[in-house]
Design a protein around this nucleic acid. Structure first.
Lengths: 154, 154
DNA sequence: TATTGTTATACTCTATAACTATA
DNA sequence: TATAGTTATAGAGTATAACAATA
């Protein structure tokens, strides 16, 4: 039926994403929901970014990113300062406290993965990591399109 | 700090899961939320199962699976009958209508992936699929543990 | 008494829309 | 007028707890 048979096998496996994500969320610190954890990880990886850029990277609406960032700012994990070059924008930056929370999260998720993926070989884990990196790069620029016709990418 | 360095690189990439999942959810039919779509896909893959088994497979609480199944039953996508061998349990089965919805979903997700992953090689897509299958198998039996000490797996 | 499943409640995540401030 | 961001609202996802029915 479809003209893209090479993706067919993939569709049935997508539920795995939800199961993995739920398992990860369960081990996060109690005052750090998944949204804020994602903000911290992205800021460490990309350095200081504007809020709109962060929303793009997460593939969510700006309003969603705004909430997650506010949660982190309230707890001193992220510093939010006006962009001097465009005073409508905010510059987001990880604080020392934020780095500490991120280390905690990293330790928890590492422990979870070490437990759940103990049956995986080093090679399989390497493939998993490579696929994740590739996925992140592929979906990094997909902010939700307002259902209107998206401008041609070219 | 951690004794499991081979998982370190993985942690920072987990945000990719959320981005991919959000993109998929956006293309689902309007009356089929992600939870119900996952139910349909699992029933097609595993055949008839009991509700508790479905919750295990999705790594969610039974109450969550119950809601998702009810949504699908209300629309005639899933048949729910009492298990004659244990009348507390329900046997869940995909209906013809459910199969139709699933075909629609499959077509939509395939279209999305064909668009987003157009830059990926066949080999990379094969690796992605293999990793997904492996993940699904690994996390298939992880119903949320009630925070009490989990019984030893051995 | 223990287990299967349902339902009520509360919290998180998400997008839409209305609004403020700046360009 | 257009854009960056905030906030209010509504709908979906989830876990906990209380409950009914069956083992």
């Amino acid at each position: 039926m479809s003209e893209h048979p090479r993706y067919e096998g993939l569709h049935g496996q997508l539920g795995a994403l939800g199961a993995l994500k739920r398992n990860i969320v369960r081990v996060l610190p109690h005052d750090c929901p998944a949204g804020s954890a994602a903000v911290l990880a992205t800021l460490r990886h990309h350095g200081s970014v504007r809020l709109s850029r962060l929303a793009d990277l997460h593939s969510v609406d700006i309003s969603v990113a705004s909430r997650h960032v506010s949660h982190a700012v309230d707890r001193g994990w992220v510093a939010r300062t006006r962009d001097p070059e465009d005073r409508r924008s905010w510059i987001l930056e990880l604080t020392a406290a934020g780095r500490g929370v991120l280390d905690d999260i990293s330790e928890r998720t590492t422990r979870l993965l070490a437990d759940r993926l103990s049956g995986w070989t080093d090679d399989e884990i390497g493939q998993l990591t490579a696929v994740m990196v590739h996925l992140r790069e592929t979906f990094a620029e997909c902010r939700p399109v307002p259902r209107a016709a998206a401008p041609a990418l070219a």
